[in-house]
């Protein structure tokens, strides 16, 4: 490990930490604006949706096993099963369907 790598590491880690830390540490007030509150209420769902689609269909490296796993996740999520159960079940089903297809 050399000095050059250390400079890169420092730059990466510092910038990444600061963008997380600054608003999280400094913001102490409750936001009053209905618009901003509504916006912040929707953001997590929007972020997750944008990160999930269409990537979930390629997540196992195979569109068929990914789609089967995705279908299982949809069904279990629809009947309000816990996160961990949905995650593990879809992995298992994707793995098993990989053995079949």
């Amino acid at each position: 490990m050399n000095k050059e790598f250390f400079m890169y590491l420092l730059a990466m880690a510092l910038v990444t930490y600061l963008v997380r830390m600054i608003p999280f540490t400094l913001m102490r007030k409750k936001i009053k604006s209905v618009f901003i509150k509504s916006f912040l209420y929707y953001v997590p769902y929007a972020v997750l949706s944008a990160m999930t689609f269409p990537y979930i269909f390629y997540s196992t490296g195979d569109v068929i096993t990914s789609s089967v796993g995705c279908a299982v996740a949809f069904i279990l999520a629809y009947i309000n099963r816990p996160l961990i159960e949905v995650a593990i079940a879809s992995c298992v089903v994707a793995f098993v369907s990989g053995l079949i297809f």
């Binding site: 490296g61 990914s66 099963r81």
Partner: peptide
């Protein structure tokens, strides 16, 4: 085969967060 099947876990979890609401 195990590695690649694990790849869907994170996305399934996202699905489980966004579907109920």
């Amino acid at each position: 085969s195990v590695c690649s099947a694990l790849g869907i876990a994170i996305y399934s979890m996202f699905v489980a967060i966004i579907i109920p609401p």
